[in-house]
Design a protein around this nucleic acid. Structure first.
Length: 798
DNA sequence: CTCTGGGACTCAGAAAGTTATGC
DNA sequence: CGCATAACTTTCTGAGTCCCAGA
């Protein structure tokens, strides 16, 4: 692999995060992504330092590791294509237009409903499963679990089940493997006008498929053997078309094969009949055993039950870094004083004198015990759990059994806000039946509240999808119990979301042209709107609603960017550095068009830290403006659109003649590009450093071997030795790639994009085209969530 | 019409739990 | 083969988006 080289060097420099960032950039250069060179270079030096400073002064930095800073090329600055915005946009337009798939072309003018409807009929669901429901179920596994279940004899059913699940045989790997590569692709692909540029190169990591043990009815021991044998042959057969689309153990309601027009209807009613067993409340608090005691100022202190519960909550968090935060401790003490008895209050006044360690140790012990349970015990607990799921986990909606996502009411505890949340450490109080509103059919039997209690209210509201709700004590906002993602209600919405994003594709050219023009409007509000939209579109920023600083962490999105969140650097570079959703830091440096740059100078003029950059713009106004281009269009659609289109573009880089393994790698790389675009991050895994060191050692060891082998070969000229040398060399390469891959994935979270931004039809169609079993990409849960997309035609284009 | 607050639903990463893999 | 660890999966619940009604 050619790319190995650059990577190697990269790795070496990777001493610390900053270095890492640098090396990444270096890599970009190396890639030969031409023009971008300038910006990249420039950014390189100044950036790291400033990043630090900024981080420091804003002090909004979350404990997250420094994000590697990356530069992204807004499409506007896209190196490859067109230099002038105008040209570029023009091109883009035409491109995208022509590209649009037949479907959309044809349906261009139709309404979403019409489109969906026609799709349902015409669309092709090549896969067997897709065809009529009846036949398919007959042939493949009897869907109905009930039926199938007892019929275990039915081979087919088993087979399908298993294979879908396992398939993985060894290949799944994906994960870590070899990866490689990428150096070049990332940016390239982005030429496409449609696709925004990723902030940094992509790599892959994989979240690969693999089985899911989870499903409720999974098979116990017996399954294993079955599985094994089955998958063996099943696999082969499946390869191509993935004949089994089984997923379901349950009967799957193939709503997507029905008349979607009706479903989209006026949308006011989401269901007709609904019955369920209510929610599962958190268990009552049970006093700690005497050996788990609390000490204050060195003295053992007996606590009242409510106090003990709070103390216990705190003790359980001793290992987190919440306890190192003043706000958390302060809020906790306030809460503690609220529940303490007079005597306790008099005694316990200083958190520093509290000793929770005995309780903490006790919890630790309990955890050990739990971990060391025997097989039988574990099985018993599992069975119990399944019982609960059986009782509370499902509801009957419009005659269909649907799985409920969160039927367990949130238990009490100390609020764990993300980032610098003003309420962290506050007590999230216990939710009681009297807090809960139940939603179900008028004619159904409402779930019974626990003895001695009653629900706050039982209502029948068919226009909403929740089964139960209560008001969260911390935020004051409602919490809802809803169906899980495999349900029709969620699936339909999901499909609509992607259809809307595809619709945007038809308007994007026009919209881009409009906001580009508006960029020079005389009216400041319009200029701001144009500039903001430009960022939302090209950088996939979130809209950015207003927030209440007293109640929530200080995070921002595009419209709420403040003066201090961007720094301008001549001639035309914008450095973004702010905390976004979940206090995830967004750092990016972008070269923008002159007009954008000039606008930003104006917007910053006469402002200081704390002032809104887009002070004349509101999210409502922005969305209103967007709606005029296309009904239902809002800022968030751009994220979905850009994410999906990026995936589609990146997937074009898949090696046609590669192994499945390589193809999966290509997929993960594309996935990663999107994650980078959307700034989906994760904290560095605890043992990451250690694991990295281990890999280093391993690499060194193999290298040593390699050198030895070389020596021997030189001396003996034995052909056999030569082969050995080659083998070792390959091994080293592979290890290095693995390590690079792992490192690049260090702070990138792939699953969010996969689950929420990437149109599954792109993925499914890709799988079909490249003969990759979907199971390699989507695990069981994901397959059921995206069941509606499995029948997509091979030539589907987003 | 704008502003406010309630309401409902999507999307987020971490933690907890399982399973696969390597030694 | 058994154990430790790595790699996923699932669960959990916090944090956004956006709509709507009412003043």
């Amino acid at each position: 692999m050619t790319d190995v080289e650059p990577k190697l060097s990269v790795k070496r420099e990777n001493e610390d995060t900053l270095e890492a960032a640098d090396s990444k950039r270096a890599r970009l250069d190396a890639n030969g992504d031409e023009p971008s060179a300038t910006p990249v270079g420039v950014r390189k030096h100044s950036r790291d330092q400033t990043a630090d400073e900024n981080g420091a002064d804003t002090k909004r930095v979350r404990q997250t590791p420094v994000k590697t800073e990356v530069k992204s090329e807004p499409a506007a600055a896209s190196p490859r294509k067109a230099a002038t915005p105008k040209g570029k946009y023009a091109e883009a337009d035409s491109d995208s237009e022509s590209e649009s798939n037949s479907d959309s072309d044809a349906d261009d003018k139709k309404s979403l409903a019409a489109r969906l409807a026609s799709k349902a009929k015409a669309s092709p669901k090549p896969s067997p499963k897709a065809k009529a429901a009846a036949p398919s179920s007959a042939k493949k596994a009897p869907t109905p679990k009930k039926a199938a279940k007892k019929e275990s004899s039915d081979e087919e059913s088993e087979e399908s089940e298993d294979s879908s699940e396992d398939e993985d045989d060894g290949s799944d790997e994906s994960g870590s493997d070899s990866g490689s590569d990428d150096d070049s692709d990332d940016e390239d692909a982005y030429d496409d006008e449609d696709a925004p540029k990723p902030k940094k190169p992509a790599v892959k990591k994989a979240a690969s498929p693999k089985k899911a043990a989870a499903s409720p009815k999974t098979k116990p021991a017996a399954g294993t053997s079955k599985k094994a044998s089955k998958s063996a042959d099943g696999d082969g057969a499946v390869t191509k078309k993935k004949k089994k689309a089984d997923e379901d153990d349950e009967d799957v309601h193939k709503w997507w094969e029905e008349d979607l027009t009706a479903m989209l209807g006026d949308g006011s009613e989401r269901w007709q009949t609904l019955s369920h067993n209510g929610v599962m409340l958190a268990p009552e608090y049970v006093a700690l055993p005497p050996q788990a005691f609390f000490k204050y100022n060195g003295q053992k202190v007996a606590l009242s039950l409510p106090t003990e519960e709070l103390i216990g909550f705190y003790a359980a968090m001793l290992k987190s870094d919440y306890v190192t935060k003043d706000k958390f401790n302060e809020n906790f003490m306030v809460e503690l004083r609220k529940v303490m008895t007079k005597e306790e209050k008099a005694l316990i006044t200083d958190l520093a004198k509290c000793d929770f360690t005995v309780i903490q140790d006790y919890f630790e012990q309990q955890r050990e015990i739990r971990k060391n349970r025997t097989k039988e015990e574990k099985a018993a607990i599992k069975a119990q759990n399944e019982e609960l799921v059986k009782q509370y986990g499902f509801c009957l909606m419009d005659g269909r059994k649907e799985r409920i996502a969160n039927f367990r009411v949130e238990p009490p505890g100390l609020f764990r806000g993300r980032g610098d949340h003003p309420k962290m450490g506050m007590l999230k109080r216990r939710v009681v039946p009297e807090d809960i509103t139940i939603n179900c059919s008028k004619d159904s039997t409402p779930p019974a509240p626990p003895a001695g209690h009653k629900w706050k209210e039982v209502i029948c509201n068919k226009t909403v999808t929740w089964l139960a709700s209560w008001v969260d004590g911390i935020s004051g906002h409602a919490k809802y119990v809803m169906l899980n993602s495999a349900s029709k209600l969620k699936g339909l919405n999901d499909m609509k979301k992607y259809e809307k994003a595809r619709d945007l594709k038809k308007h994007i050219k026009h919209i881009r042209r409009s906001y580009t023009e508006d960029m020079s409007s005389k009216e400041m509000a319009i200029r701001q709107r144009a500039t903001a939209l430009h960022f939302i579109d090209r950088l996939a920023l979130r809209c950015g609603n207003e927030k209440d600083p007293e109640e929530q962490a200080d995070t921002v999105g595009c419209c709420s960017l403040r003066f201090e969140h961007i720094k301008l650097e001549e001639p035309s570079t914008v450095h973004f550095d702010f905390l976004g959703k979940d206090s995830i830091r967004y750092q990016n440096s972008v070269d923008v068009e002159e007009r954008v740059y000039k606008n930003l100078i104006i917007f910053q003029k006469n402002k200081e830290e704390g002032d809104l950059l887009f002070d004349r713009l509101t999210t409502t106004a922005l969305n209103k403006y967007l709606t005029d281009f296309m009904p239902g269009l809002t800022a968030k659609v751009f994220r979905t659109y850009n994410a999906s289109i990026t995936l589609q573009e990146q997937l074009k880089l898949t090696p046609t003649d590669g192994s499945i393994h390589e193809k999966v790698l290509a997929y993960n790389r594309a996935n990663r590009a999107v994650a980078v675009l959307c700034n989906h991050q994760r904290s560095v895994p605890k043992k990451f450093g250690e694991q990295m060191d281990k890999m280093d050692e391993k690499i060194e060891a193999v290298k040593k071997e390699l050198n030895e082998a070389r020596k021997v070969y030189k001396e003996t000229k034995d052909e056999k030795k030569k082969a050995a040398v080659e083998r070792l060399k390959a091994r080293v390469d592979s290890l290095v790639i693995q390590k690079t891959d792992k490192d690049e994935n260090k702070t990138i979270a792939l699953s969010t994009a996969k689950l929420n931004y990437l149109d599954p039809r792109i993925t499914v169609a890709w799988c079909k085209r490249y003969d990759v079993p979907v199971e390699k990409i989507y695990n069981k849960t994901q397959r059921s969530k995206f069941a509606w997309s499995m029948g997509v035609p091979t030539d589907f284009t987003f």
